Computed example of a mutant assay.
Amino acid sequence: MSTSEDNAMSWIKENVQSFLPETKIRGIAVGNEVLGVLDDESSEALVGAVKNLYSAIQKLHLDDVIQITTAHSQAVFANSYPPSSCIFNDNVVQYMKQLLELFSKIGSPFCLNAYPFLAYMSDPENIDINYALFQPTQGIYDPKTKLHYDNMLDAQIDAAYAALEDAGFKNMEVIVTETGWASRGDDHEAAATVNNARTYNYNLRKRLAKKKGTPLMPKRVVKGYVFAIFNEDLKSGAASERNFGLFKADGSIAYDIGFHGLESSAADTSRLFFKGIPARGWFWSHFFASAISALTLLLLSS
């Protein structure tokens, strides 16, 4: 697909166009956390695939309803503290610039997977866990912008905005395509608890429901997707990697974050209901359209 426009066209026709208009497809995320994580060959393939997929939807006159983008981890940044100092890593710049030039032209956002959980786990002695959990805290002060941050997620988003401005793309919107907190972990992952996961996602819910911007971009409403709906019980790696879900792998609720009407059935995983949840603006209508894992397609309900 990265080297063949014909392959990209065939893929779009088979996996996207054939499901329209019954399925409301609003965006295609090409890959997940490729830049800064995988090798140069994969990065080159990502750029080629993005360009070819966009060319395909444009030829099919779907570009007005479907966005093309890709999600990035914090690995694309050289630094992110304080937020105003953030720039892109040298090893991703040549690929990132090509993507940003296209996204700027077609109106796609910069998609960021932002995890205060991972940042806290990397430096628990110097990061206040309350700052990561949206709890009352002293927060941080950015001396360059003279802005105060009372939670880490806002700081991570504004760090991305700073990197975009440094790269010449100040007007590009940042969307949080993944964020969450593990409810269980290995012995060395002390912060991965049910209480912390509940606190983070409950406070995230309240933060997004306010429809407010960040300290740096107060007029741009923060948009985000919780990771994840289900625990990934077969995933390799640390125990925390298998325990980001609002629901367990058997369909039972991992912990309650205040959504009335949720029902689960451990006996029958096909019976998972979301009863009486009203669509109250962006947050309510999209909260459960979350990435369960590294998705290729983001199927977003309106």
Rank of each mutant, 00 (worst) to 15 (best):
N7W: 08
W11P: 04
K24M: 08
K24N: 13
I28S: 07
L35M: 05
L35D: 07
D40I: 09
Y54S: 12
S55E: 08
I57V: 05
I66A: 06
I68F: 08
A78E: 07
S80Q: 06
P83E: 12
Q94P: 15
G107W: 05
S108I: 03
P109G: 10
F110D: 03
N113A: 14
L118E: 15
A119M: 07
I127K: 03
I127G: 04
L133S: 07
P136S: 10
Q138G: 15
T145W: 00
T145D: 00
K146R: 14
N151G: 00
D154G: 02
A155E: 03
I157D: 00
A160P: 01
E173I: 12
E173L: 06
I175P: 03
T177C: 15
G185A: 06
A191M: 05
A191I: 03
A197F: 04
T199Q: 05
L204Y: 05
L208E: 00
K210V: 03
M217T: 11
K223F: 04
Y225R: 10
V226W: 01
A238N: 04
L246Q: 04
L246T: 10
F247I: 12
G258C: 10
S264L: 07
S264I: 08
F273T: 07
P278L: 15
F283S: 03
W284Y: 14
L295N: 14
